[in-house]
């Protein structure tokens, strides 16, 4: 039984294939979505935010980690660097949040033939990504504006503008360009695209091997913690602003608290990334030694 399981682990070059495939296709789609203009109906923006179905499909069909990182890198290279819109450090946040979301969506699926599972994974991938980027956008205004709390109207407006964009993206891009196309592509490509890369299709049995290495429970728990850190911080701050509008703020304390919580969240997410990477390295070494 052991030998059968080992045959399913990907070789280094197969991982590279998945990486290149995901990078070039998602990069291409990014370039197309950048070129398509968006339509505004009042404040509602009908734009093609991204073709999320490509990384979602690839993460579900292949090794999720390599497909996710490849897609994020493809976005940075094709969609930003080549169009001259590279944002430097800002791209780092996009890179981490997008690959994290796609990776989680990928490991949620144990059986690519199960349509319900695939649909759930597609939607939650988009929701996770949009949630992270919404929080980061709110945080940007928070840090960037000096006396954020004392200005009437600004706090609510930031939350409303960003929250609205979040629901807009999830409902429009999430359903039209993630849920429906993923449900269309995954069953069609399953069993067809894997032989082209010299692999066997993912089944219930062989997903077990990748799961054993990456321990998704641990990863998900850590991610949830990081989210909670962000979320609680965010909630407590808005509550203060809404209910105690005139209360004088202990400013020094508050800014300290903000920095501490941001620091905690950053440390948590960094340690998660390191855990994933080192686990992977260890697994690779183990494979190399065997």
């Amino acid at each position: 039984m052991q030998t059968v399981k080992e045959r399913y682990t990907l070789t280094q070059s197969q991982k590279m294939m998945v990486f290149i495939l995901s990078m070039s296709l998602y990069g291409l789609s990014n370039m197309i979505t950048e070129l398509v203009p968006s339509v505004y109906v009042g404040p509602v923006e009908f734009s093609i935010e991204y073709f999320a179905f490509i990384p979602l499909t690839l993460c579900i069909l292949f090794h999720p980690l390599y497909a996710a990182i490849g897609a994020s890198l493809g976005e940075v290279i094709f969609g930003e660097l080549m169009l001259g819109q590279f944002g430097g450090f800002g791209e780092l946040e996009k890179f981490i949040s997008f690959s994290l979301a796609m990776y989680i969506a990928g490991i949620m699926v144990t059986d690519p033939k199960n349509r319900q599972q695939v649909g759930m994974a597609a939607l939650s991938g988009v929701i996770i990504h949009q949630l992270i980027s919404m929080m980061v956008d709110i945080g940007k205004v928070w840090i960037g504006v000096d006396d954020f709390e004392t200005l009437p109207g600004l706090a609510e407006s930031v939350v409303v503008v960003e929250g609205f964009a979040f629901f807009n993206d999830v409902l429009f891009s999430g359903i039209l360009f993630a849920l429906i196309p993923t449900l269309y592509f995954v069953p069609r490509l399953y069993g067809k695209i894997e032989p082209l890369l010299g692999m066997k299709p993912r089944t219930r049995e062989n997903t077990h091997s990748t799961r054993g290495i990456l321990r998704p429970k641990l990863v998900i728990a850590a991610v949830l913690l990081a989210f909670a850190a962000f979320g609680f911080e965010f909630l407590s701050e808005t509550d203060l602003n809404i209910f105690e509008w005139e209360a004088p703020f202990a400013e020094q304390l508050e800014t300290n608290l903000i920095w501490i919580s941001i620091g905690v969240a950053a440390v948590l997410s960094l340690s998660i990334l390191f855990a994933i990477i080192s686990r992977n390295k260890k697994a690779k070494d183990r494979i190399a030694h065997e």
């Binding site: 294939m17 998945v18 290149i20 495939l21 070039s24 296709l25 291409l28 789609s29 073709f51 179905f53 490509i54 499909t57 592509f185 069609r188 490509l189 067809k192 695209i193 082209l196 890369l197 010299g198």
Partner: peptide, 13 residues
Amino acid sequence: FYPLLLSTAKRAR
């Protein structure tokens, strides 16, 4: 993207 996925897979290999 359906034909493109398949042909890019071949190219990646």
